[in-house]
Simulated assay, not measured.
Amino acid sequence: MMAAGVLKESLKYRDEAHGGIAYYLDANSNKVAGNNPGSGPTFHDGVLLSGVDVNGNKNTKVVSAQDYYYNSYFSNGFFPEDRIFKSDYIALRNISLDYTLNTKLLQRMHLNLSRLTLSVFANNVLYLYKVAPNTIPESTNGTGWDTGGFGTTALPAQRSMGVSIKVNF
């Protein structure tokens, strides 16, 4: 969930208002800190981490917030304790209200029916309880905007409502 940017803790660096620094892509597609001096776009989701490069010089390499969160919390091959959430939940899956008309009423209405039942229903109504914030409990790895096309997440269950008429002759 941190990698996908769905927690409020992952808002840091996502834009200028949340501490992201400006950068642009040079002719070789390298990220360069600052505003684009040409006509290309300037991005404001840059992260400049403290540290030094292999020569001992201060780090000047800018990465995007998306790359920072993905590389820090997902692709590194381990999942630290503070990045794993329980997925306990209680869901209200179905609600149905049926009404069966009285047989005598059917006879007075001159309907040649032995039984008539009217129903209204709703499926996948809501979650009554869930532990993990900002996620669908049935998903396997969070529900980030950038991972929905891959097999690692689940879309929300489709909610449906309807009316049913059951007739016995």
Rank of each mutant, 00 (worst) to 15 (best):
I165L: 11
S139L: 01
L48A: 07
T143N: 13
Y70L: 11
V163S: 04
Q107P: 10
D98P: 11
V54E: 15
I21K: 09
Q66L: 06
R14Q: 11
L97I: 14
G162R: 04
Y127M: 03
S164H: 07
G51R: 04
L48H: 05
M1H: 10
N168F: 10
A132T: 04
G142S: 03
F78P: 00
Y129I: 01
G38I: 13
V62L: 04
E16Y: 12
I165V: 14
K86E: 12
G151M: 06
T103M: 13
Y13I: 07
N168W: 09
F85M: 05
N134W: 03
Y127L: 03
G144T: 04
H44N: 15
V131E: 12
I90N: 07
Q158W: 06
S87N: 11
F169Q: 06
L128A: 06
D67H: 09
D53R: 07
L116K: 02
S96Y: 06
G56V: 07
V120Y: 04
V163Q: 07
H110D: 15
Y69E: 00
A22Y: 09
V125N: 00
A91H: 09
R108C: 02
V63Y: 00
N168G: 13
P41G: 14
L113R: 10
V131M: 08
L11G: 05
N124R: 04
F74C: 08
V6Y: 10
V54P: 07
F85T: 00
D67G: 03
S114C: 09
A22P: 08
P41N: 13
G142D: 01
K86A: 14
Y99V: 02
G149D: 09
A122P: 02
A65L: 06
N102H: 13
Y89M: 07
T117F: 08
G34L: 11
F85P: 00
V6L: 11
A33Y: 14
N59C: 09
S75E: 10
N134Y: 05
V125T: 01
K58Q: 07
K61M: 13
D26V: 07
D98R: 06
V131K: 13
T100V: 12
N94I: 05
T147C: 10
L7K: 08
L11S: 10
V32E: 12
G149Y: 08
P80W: 01
N134F: 02
Y70R: 10
V120T: 12
A65N: 01
I90P: 00
S39E: 12
L105I: 15
R14E: 08
A22K: 15
L118Q: 08
G38W: 13
L113S: 08
S96G: 12
Q158N: 11
T103Y: 14
K130S: 09
V62W: 00
N168P: 04
E81W: 13
R83F: 05
V163K: 09
K58T: 09
G142L: 01
A65M: 06
T103W: 08
Y73L: 01
F79P: 01
K58C: 00
N141T: 05
P137Q: 02
A122T: 04
G149Q: 03
V63P: 00
D146M: 08
Q158E: 12
